[in-house]
Design a protein around this nucleic acid. Structure first.
Length: 577
DNA sequence: GCCGTTTTCGGCCCGACTGTTTTCAGTCG
């Protein structure tokens, strides 16, 4: 059972308790537990027997939660959870994913109309039955219909962090439990796409039957969907499908290339192969005339025979990579090893869980040369955002830290809110005393495109601002980006020497890969940041690097790769490109 | 349900927006 599986049980308990109308603080504590668990940097199942205190000491994990974790790992389920599921149909929970629909209204619809799932909700809305209920009207009904439609578009997809966790677990499991020779994950996980539809695993073995059998007993399996001689499919508890294919050793490379995709990249590659007198398939590269297989064992041979350098999977979207490869002009993509630090993280001063010292220690452990402390500003009352006075106090705290510690440069920053009119939430006289200022939007998402664009551009003109965080505000599979003219934003950023962020938080990845490339082409500098709220989240950085690579970025495009002195000049706008 | 203590209970993040209301409930961040 993965941390994610455990976390989602607690989330589900919280959901049902909310619909039930239970004590909101009890609900929150389940949510908090879920959050903590999904961010733990270690695997619960593998330490629960040897080092249970590591789990017990995590914030928000008390006696009750710990018992439920034990119960989940030992028995695969938890009594409290099962009881609640009997009380309310689990299908009710999918309704929580409808925007603007919360527990109260779901309970109302369930009680009065017996609505248990999306289809029934949609039908009731179309028959104009919802508007008759207390507190409802025609407008809410239309809003619900629109939200249902948006939700249906997203369904069946998963975030990359979950896909990565599952594919890594399966690879480890098969390597240790079965007689595999070569094994790799292909598909969108390998391309590091921000969301994935399924996981494809390829394997070579001398004993296919054994590998298939082992695969179908993977501990995270919810159901086995198909099981044949060379192929099997399982579904995880979260509903993610994983396909395993046993392939011939001589075709492993070809198969890896084929199943890595993307479809568009493969179509373009096939056309090229055809022009050159080859036929390409998952079984190899074949000479059209003789029918001989000329490549297939290694993936790079396929590209080689097509007179191309090997193309990194992140670029395989048919967005010009084949043309560039042909000319030898592929970018030297930024790697995680190039990253020297992280400029966006929170502490206990606002909604983070760790102190400045603890975040610095975690940064050191990752081998960073610098970190930037950037708590929220006062308008985010919900997270106890900092006002001018508290910020000044935090600055003193950081200076005190600097005097007693070395080895990592702790920069004084803030994530200041951009208010509705484009002004900043804190006084410029205080902001200018910081090492750098991140500006971002957390409220009033529903402005018109023009209003929002003007709002952000105005903020970028503030001389203290050197980073725009999560520029489009999207939350993957949850919330679309706000309406904004990103081209205008990028232009304004370049004109004002502001760096655009790739927020590496797996639910954001904002800028997206496409916007990232656009920003680079327009001359913008990029910063990749984890937006950590605990010391265990710094590793999210790798997802940001994945996005940067998909956006064709090189180390020089990303300020986190710069030595501290150069970084400081960029943050003070003395240097840009 | 967690946490911390002024220690075994009582507090726990709150303000804005929307659509429904005629003073507020529900949702979101």
């Amino acid at each position: 059972m993965t941390n994610q599986d455990i976390a989602s049980v607690f989330d589900e308990i919280a959901d049902i308790l909310e619909i039930k109308g239970d004590n909101p603080f009890r609900v929150r504590s389940y949510r908090r537990a879920a959050e903590t668990i999904s961010a733990l940097p270690f695997d619960i199942e593998s330490v629960i027997d040897t080092d249970p205190d590591r789990i017990r000491s995590a914030p928000g994990i008390g006696v009750g939660t710990f018992r439920k974790i034990q119960e989940l790992i030992e028995t695969g389920s938890c009594q409290e959870h099962e009881n609640l599921r009997r009380e309310f149909p689990p299908s009710l929970l999918e309704l929580l994913r409808v925007q603007d629909l919360g527990p109260k209204k779901i309970a109302l619809f369930y009680k009065h109309l017996g609505i248990r799932n999306l289809d029934e909700l949609e039908a009731a809305a179309r028959q104009e039955k919802l508007r008759e209920l207390p507190g409802m009207g025609a407008k809410s009904e239309l809003k619900i219909l629109k939200s249902i439609e948006e939700l249906r578009h997203r369904q069946g997809r998963f975030r990359l962090d979950y896909g990565t966790e599952i594919s890594n677990r399966i690879l480890d499991y098969l390597r240790s439990q079965a007689n595999v020779q070569r094994i790799a994950a292909a598909g969108s996980v390998r391309r590091r796409k921000e969301t994935i539809g399924d996981v494809d695993v390829l394997v070579t073995t001398s004993n296919p039957g054994d590998v298939i059998r082992t695969f179908t007993t993977f501990p995270g399996t919810y159901e086995v969907q198909a099981q044949g001689e060379t192929k099997a499919s399982i579904r995880t508890r979260q509903g993610l499908q994983v396909d395993l294919r046993v392939v011939e050793d001589d075709a492993f490379g070809a198969c890896l290339q084929y199943f890595t995709g993307s479809k568009e990249h493969n179509v373009a590659l096939r056309e090229r192969a055809k022009r050159m007198g080859f036929k390409i398939s998952e079984y190899g590269l074949f000479d059209t005339e003789s029918g001989d297989r000329v490549a297939g064992r290694e993936e790079c041979e396929i590209y080689e025979k097509l007179r191309l350098p090997w193309i990194p999977p992140e670029l395989r979207e048919n967005r010009g990579e084949i043309e560039k490869a042909e000319k030898g002009e592929l970018p030297a993509l930024v790697t995680i090893d190039n990253i020297r630090g992280d400029l966006h993280m929170h502490t206990t001063a606002s909604d983070g869980r760790n102190t400045i010292e603890e975040m610095a220690a975690a940064g050191l452990e990752r081998g960073y040369a610098f970190i930037g402390i950037t708590d929220h500003s006062k308008s985010l009352a919900m997270v106890r955002g900092l006002d001018e006075e508290k910020l000044l106090r935090q600055m003193e705290e950081i200076e005190a830290y600097r005097r007693t510690n070395s080895g990592i440069e702790v920069l004084k920053g803030i994530e200041v809110d951009i208010l509705a009119d484009g002004s900043l939430d804190l006084d410029t006289s205080v902001l200018s005393q910081l090492d750098f200022v991140i500006a971002s939007i957390h409220s009033r998402f529903n402005m018109t495109r023009d209003e929002m664009t003007r709002r952000i551009c105005r903020a970028l003109e503030n001389p203290t601002v050197s980073i725009l965080a999560h520029p489009t505000g999207r939350l993957l599979l949850q919330r679309d980006a706000y309406q904004v003219d990103l081209e205008e934003i990028i232009k304004a950023a370049v004109a004002n020497r502001v760096c655009l962020e790739i927020n590496a938080y797996p639910a954001r990845l904002d800028l997206s890969d496409i916007h990232c490339r656009m920003a680079r082409d327009m001359g913008a500098l990029i910063t990749i940041n984890s937006d950590s709220h605990t010391d265990g989240m710094l590793h999210y950085m790798s997802f940001g690097v994945d996005t940067a690579r998909r956006g064709w970025l090189e180390a020089e495009d990303v300020i986190n790769t710069y030595p501290v002195d150069r970084l400081k000049r960029v943050l003070k706008k003395q240097e840009y490109r």
